[in-house]
Amino acid sequence: MKTHMEREVTILKNRLLELAGDVNSSLNMTYKALVDQDKGLANQVIKHDDAIDEEEINIEEDCLKILALYQPVASDLREVISILKINNDLERIGDLSVNICRYLKKIIKAGPVEVPELFNEMFPKVLHMMNLTIDCCYNDNIATVIEVCNLDLEVDKLNKELITQLTDRISKNDGNLTQLMFFFSMTRTLERTADYFTNICEDIYYKVSGSIVRHNPDLMVVDEEED
């Protein structure tokens, strides 16, 4: 039979997954708004962020309540601490989606533009990282953590390429300067978003294994599947 605390933690975990779903939806809408250059959709993402902020506070308060009332230890403690940290990271990812949408609105306002092709490589990778991260949150499969970390390296590489391209175009005055500057901010923000997914996966790794691998991914040990 589950203890009272276990039931509370299960409820909390489900709420975290719902929040992750909300953030996932915001990020997907952000990409669609970018592709379609849809200002209305960008506004929806910005507006929806208030609900994400509110739920983040609620989840944090419930984590603190569980810590204060039940004083969990061992895997229970790691579960609550990881929820607390992941919750915070999800809220930040929501904020970053808002930032991207704000940049997009400035870009749209400056006139018609062609979105740099590399965004169509980079954005889907970040969305794939998000999906893997949610799966990882759901089933605690730490093999996914490595996959997400590897995708982050690819996103970093694409970000560098985009920055080189945009810097080059800015120096050559090739295009609208305002739009190029905001694309520049956008790629950096998207790269930061990807970093948050690795943070979340590292927190899940900690929850499952008890090891803190942040800043040192070489410490990660994942059992190879048997043939």
Partner: peptide, 17 residues
């Protein structure tokens, strides 16, 4: 012991299960 016990019985005992 209290953050990452290596034995399941220890974990169950300290978590009240």
């Amino acid at each position: 012991i209290f953050s990452n016990p290596s034995n399941k019985q220890t974990e169950d005992y300290i978590s009240g299960r």
